[in-house]
Amino acid sequence: MKVLTCFKVVPDLTLLTDEDWQVVNNQVDVGFVKNDWNPFDESALEMTLKLSELSESLSGSMELTAVSVGNKKIDSFLKTLLALKFQHAVRIEAEQDLRFNPHQIAAWLAGYVKKSHQDVVVMGVQSGVGDNAQTPLLLAEKLGWPSITQVIGIKPEKNGCLRVTSQMDDGVLEQVIKPPVVLSVGNAPNSFLRVPTLKDKLNYGKKSVEVIIPTDIIVDNTTEAEIHAPKLIKLSAIENQRDSVKIQDGTPSDKATILFNRYLKQRLKKL
């Protein structure tokens, strides 16, 4: 079974101070903060590795490919995935502003899926900075495949099937399904991506990242993808500040007393 896991590298927005949120030409400069795995995609990558491990004893090994869209700055992340024993690490070369264009990304991913004959696609449900939450769904539509969202667990089954657990609003759904399928990963606990060993970094991390030019894989109509993408008109700041009285002097007990007497007692009385 060929499994493609799509991920995005995102800036860690929690590192930005209030003063950093300056909108200039409908952009915020996030170039100086460190990048990290998109959390939902990180879960998708770890779930793929676990799935592959489990499948070895049941139905044979899986062929794992990790793919992302961007410039060579993301190659270090792809190298990490090679060290974690993804057989292929693929970067779809792109320099343009794709923040709010899940249609374009889905079109390229669909092209790659078709070209490389994948059986299963796994990816996070949403990613920053666009927070579009559309890419896996649009990809499923472009491929004509079914899709399961809010996935929190994937296990191998016999006969090339998968046991997929997903979180619904009022319960948990467990389905055994026959691929092809697009799985969109939601809030899956204990799914942080493992760290490669030094030995694996040396053995596998030196493999090359495969770089693909979009024109080599596009099968969908790019113009259509461009047209249907929403057009960003403007970005504006959100005001979240409150009065924020600081209690910082004295022992913890002193602080608790000030907090209780000045701010909580009257409020607790009214509850």
């Binding site: 949120w21 909108v23 709010f100 900075v129 927070d131 249907h228 929403p230 403007k234 970005l235």
Partner: peptide, 20 residues
């Protein structure tokens, strides 16, 4: 139609035009 939604991890509000 003009739609507004939170973007940049809920730090900003984006206004988007949908055409079709």
């Amino acid at each position: 139609v003009l739609c507004s939604k939170l973007v940049y991890g809920n730090h900003l509000r984006g206004y988007f035009k949908l055409d079709f």
